[in-house]
């Protein structure tokens, strides 16, 4: 359950940014989470629900944007979509496919008042 630690890190980043902006309230926050990132989205949403209470972002709407997984097949060299690290290449059936995208965990932006 490191999603709780991730949620706390998110709150840290959000509050720090909001304060620097002189904001009194954060009404929305958008996250980008890669399909291959080590994150259980539901657990993260629950973690956020808990940590955002009593913060500048209490009641803020959370939107989680998924960045699709992508990789390069080391067998045939093709750039292919990848939904799990151990999936075979959809073009040649080979292994391994090295992830090139979809591992991100980012706070994208916030809407403040």
């Amino acid at each position: 359950m490191h999603e709780m630690a991730l949620a706390e890190s998110i709150l840290n980043i959000v509050e720090e940014t909001a304060r620097n902006q002189g904001a009194v309230r954060v009404t929305e926050l958008r996250l980008e989470i890669g399909e291959l990132a080590n994150v259980e989205i539901e657990a993260l949403q629950f973690g956020l629900e808990v940590v955002l209470r009593n913060s500048l972002a209490a009641g803020a709407q959370v939107e989680i944007l998924t960045i699709p997984g992508q990789g390069q097949c080391l067998e045939c060299g093709a750039m292919v979509p990848l939904s799990a690290r151990y999936d075979p290449c959809p073009q040649c059936g080979g292994y391994p496919v090295r992830p090139t995208g979809g591992q991100e965990m980012r706070v994208k932006d916030i809407l403040v008042e």
Binding site: L6, S9, I10, N12, I13, V14, T17, A18, Q21, A23, T27, E28, L31, Q45, F46, E49, Q61, V62, E63, I64, E104, M105, R106, V107, K108, D109, I110, L111, V112, E113
Partner: peptide
């Protein structure tokens, strides 16, 4: 029994300011 409201609507009021962050969640670590 939390029926959390993560269903998103984009009709936010005009007074809101969008602040771009683009920061890794684990940046502090």
């Amino acid at each position: 029994d939390h029926d959390h409201s993560y269903d998103h609507s984009h009709d936010h009021a005009a007074e809101g300011r969008l602040v771009s962050i683009e920061r890794d969640i684990l940046a502090k670590n």
